[in-house]
């Protein structure tokens, strides 16, 4: 039985959006872990936030200084800053200029 064009399109789009995406995510996730492990072996530490996620964290700490979770947020913020200063190669795409501008916050 010959399938109609619409059926072929429907099937191929489903295959692309489900197994296609799942396979791509699996490969990306495993590669990322491989790179994290390699960096941890070399440097004993890695940066824990991407520049964008870090910017969100900084904004949240400024907006919620008295939040019960603020001490944890500040600790994680400073931990990331210290890691970025200590390591040679960040996991996320931090530039040297961005790292140089980072400051610790009072815990």
């Amino acid at each position: 039985m010959a399938l109609s064009t619409l059926t072929w399109v429907s099937m191929l789009v489903s295959l692309l959006l489900l197994p296609g995406v799942a396979a791509a995510v699996l490969v990306r996730s495993l590669r990322t872990e491989e790179r994290k492990l390699a960096l941890l072996r070399e440097q004993d530490d890695i940066d824990s936030y991407s520049p964008r996620a870090f910017s969100d964290l900084r904004g949240w700490i400024r907006a919620n200084p008295d939040d019960p979770y603020a001490p944890i947020a500040r600790r994680r913020y400073n931990e990331c800053v210290r890691s970025l200063r200590a390591i040679d190669e960040p996991h996320y795409d931090w530039s040297d200029e961005q790292i140089a501008r980072l400051e610790l916050v009072d815990e």
């Binding site: 295959l15 489900l18 799942a22 995510v25 996730s29 990322t32 994290k36 941890l40 890695i46």
Partner: peptide, 24 residues
């Protein structure tokens, strides 16, 4: 562990991978 990712594996892969097996 603290170094592990959550959204890519725990969210995207789990939901899409599970449905992909349904499609299979």
């Amino acid at each position: 562990s603290r170094y592990d990712d959550v959204p890519l594996g725990g969210g995207l892969f789990t939901a899409i991978g599970n449905t992909s097996i349904g499609l299979l």
